Simulated assay, not measured.
Amino acid sequence: MFYRPGHEDHGLPHNPFKAIVAPRPIGWISTLTPNGTANLAPYSFFNGVADDPPMVMYSTTGSKIGRDEAKDSLTNIRATGEFCVSIVSRALQDAMNLSSGHYAPDEDEYVIAGLTKGTPSVVKAPFVAEAPASLECKLFKEIELPGGATMVLGEVVGVHIRDEHIIDGILDVTTYQPMARLGYRDYAAVSETFALNRPGQK
């Protein structure tokens, strides 16, 4: 099949785009409101975009359900200029799902999901202490995209890794199985890895 997004109907019950660009890491974005209330929400349009300095991006689409305003994560980042990203492990799938609900700005998703606020070292926003790894970030740039989406670029200014996941000097993802978003309601978890050498490498 072939279709032109925005010009032709794909004819399927659901948009296949998210299932094509998959798996996508889940960025568990934590922020603080200006009055100090923590906010936590997962975003599946998330990834690393550079490593020196380390940079990440996430994209938020549309406004809050029932309110004509930006989602809380973006509102808080605009106000404070900082955020944290925690990596979702398989063991945290239910907590991540709970934190994706539509809550009022003054409700604390950490409490709702039964999570612990990790103490940051550089920024003020907490991270998920139970997460295998977390990134403290400063806002670098906000880019408005067609269709009402906003892409947030952040510079990583602090990295937290739980010691039990560093084995023989490397971060072993199979010890915590990072989760990723597929299309529709489907998710995946990394339980197996393999290595490939580039041509010419030994």
Rank of each mutant, 00 (worst) to 15 (best):
108 D>K: 00
167 I>D: 08
114 G>I: 12
129 A>R: 01
141 K>N: 13
133 A>M: 14
152 V>S: 08
107 E>D: 08
175 T>N: 00
185 R>M: 15
115 L>Y: 11
159 V>K: 07
182 L>V: 05
134 S>G: 04
146 P>S: 13
152 V>Q: 05
126 P>V: 05
105 P>N: 15
185 R>H: 15
132 P>Y: 14
148 G>E: 11
134 S>N: 04
130 E>S: 00
155 E>T: 14
120 P>I: 05
137 C>A: 09
173 V>E: 08
149 A>K: 05
159 V>W: 10
162 R>C: 12
145 L>C: 03
180 A>G: 15
180 A>E: 03
139 L>S: 06
171 L>V: 13
152 V>A: 09
174 T>I: 03
117 K>F: 04
115 L>T: 06
163 D>I: 01
188 A>H: 09
171 L>W: 06
110 Y>D: 07
172 D>G: 07
126 P>Y: 05
169 G>V: 09
146 P>T: 12
186 D>Y: 09
167 I>T: 13
129 A>E: 15
164 E>L: 02
125 A>L: 05
144 E>C: 02
137 C>D: 02
188 A>W: 10
117 K>H: 07
112 I>V: 13
132 P>E: 15
121 S>K: 09
127 F>D: 01
115 L>C: 12
136 E>Q: 04
179 M>T: 08
151 M>A: 15
136 E>H: 02
174 T>R: 01
192 E>N: 12
138 K>E: 10
126 P>C: 08
